[in-house]
């Protein structure tokens, strides 16, 4: 597996992905450092593909995305959002394939995945995000977060986030995409029960 990843890194430059946006300005970001074309290159890519131990569903997810979107470097965040939405995380073994699809380096993909809070490398448990920013601090979110951690973990992950844009009705929390205003610990518990009931 480790060797396969190394190989992907070496041959990703093969993909001189044409800019699907057709925008000249993007070219400098998609032009490969050096160009290996022809049969040899193609077979190496196929070899790497065969060696990859990607789970078929993730492979399918990448193909779906590639079919519907340009495969330029600027599509990295949309692609990561897509993978995360379908699989709940960005599996480490998917990163070389993502790099290959968008013609960027694995380091770029790893760097982006780990830079942004939204992307997880491992699938997450049910999560409640509690706002820890100033507007909610003014209404006691510090103790709410501490209580929630004490009472709810490890059943769910309690994540401190900074601002849900619900600042006039704090403290605020979010479960899935559902924002709760003027929230209390019992309110969070009730919403979690409802969310788990739905699962």
């Amino acid at each position: 597996m480790g060797q396969a990843i190394e190989q992907v890194g070496q041959c990703q430059e093969v993909f001189a992905t044409p800019s699907a946006l057709g925008v000249a300005g993007i070219d400098k970001y998609t032009t490969p450092l050096f160009d290996i074309s022809g049969k040899h290159a193609r077979s190496r890519v196929q070899w790497v593909r065969k060696k990859m131990t990607l789970q078929p569903p993730i492979r399918a997810t990448l193909d779906e995305f590639g079919a519907a979107h340009p495969t330029t470097a600027d599509q990295l965040l949309p692609l990561l959002h897509y993978v995360q939405a379908v699989h709940g995380c960005i599996p480490t073994q998917a990163m070389p394939e993502i790099a290959l699809l968008l013609n960027v380096s694995r380091a770029d993909v790893f760097g982006v995945v780990t830079f942004y809070d939204d992307f997880d490398v491992k699938p997450q448990r049910l999560e409640v995000a509690v706002c820890g920013a100033e507007a909610c601090q003014a209404l006691g979110c510090r103790s709410l977060i501490a209580e929630a951690r004490r009472e709810l973990e490890p059943r769910v992950r309690v994540k401190e986030v900074f601002c849900l844009g619900n600042c006039a009705s704090g403290p605020s929390a979010r479960i899935d995409e559902h924002v709760l205003g003027r929230v209390t610990l019992s309110g969070i518990k009730a919403a979690l029960d409802a969310a788990e009931h739905q699962l």
Binding site: Y29, D74, L76, L77, D108, G111, V112, F115, Y116, F119
Partner: peptide, 25 residues
């Protein structure tokens, strides 16, 4: 529409441009 990914600094205009280009903010 392009979605950010939970990074405050991407509200800074140049970090935002980097993010739209598919890079770290």
């Amino acid at each position: 529409v392009r979605l950010g990914a939970g990074s405050y600094i991407c509200g800074e205009e140049t970090a935002m441009l980097e993010s739209i280009e598919g890079k770290r903010g």
